[in-house]
Amino acid sequence: MSVGLVIVSHSAALAAGVVELAAQMAVGVSIVAAGGMDDGGLGTSLEKVMSALGQADTGEGVVVLTDLGSAVMTAESALEFMGGPATVALADAPLVEGAVAAAVAAASGAGLQAVRHAAETALQNSGAARATDAGTATGLDSGTEPRKDHTPEGEQTAELILINPMGLHARPAAVLAGELGAMDVDIEINGVDGQSVMMLMTLGAGEGTKLHVRASGPDAVGAVALVRREVTSGFGEI
């Protein structure tokens, strides 16, 4: 069982679309749409939200993502109506990126607050990823060779080449982030957090791209082996 998600939107079509997108990356996670009004019009409905909360909760709690202003107010109202249950968390997150990041975190077995955090940092993480990339590029330009001298003790590294035609697109990124997320490891792939699906997707790594993997922590050996296995098998896509 994993944390469930509820997607609250003014539009039934938008909520259903976000559910479809997030579910593709997180098989087995309960993701329920609460979009539009009973009559199909635009708006948000307390009854729909409360009913979705009931459906989405499989015992591990529910993270709620919302689109515009009054959707947030309706979601807050639902929680107030229910007496502020500890098993429901509202995420202040971008709807699409947040839902995808939360779904992957939930699929990897993360708890309620960790799933909410994954949603709320979905954009920050991709911003940080770009900053890290820029720093790495500067280091290479100056001709320094930091790797050998500064490799901390116990760090595992690997250099792998993507062989599947689609490269590190959404599904493989979700697979890696999901499996790595369940491990006790700090892992970077080309300078971004390997446990974050959003960060991995920001790499835009296509077929033939070289991946530099650096991992440390108790599960470092297993984590690098996992990445090697997935990459060299083309994520099962070839």
Binding site: H10, M37, D38, G43, T44, L46, E47, S70, T74, S77
Partner: peptide
């Protein structure tokens, strides 16, 4: 009101 109004006036 929260279920039927739809806009911001519902939750408010």
């Amino acid at each position: 009101l929260m279920s039927k109004v739809g806009g911001a006036a519902g939750p408010l």
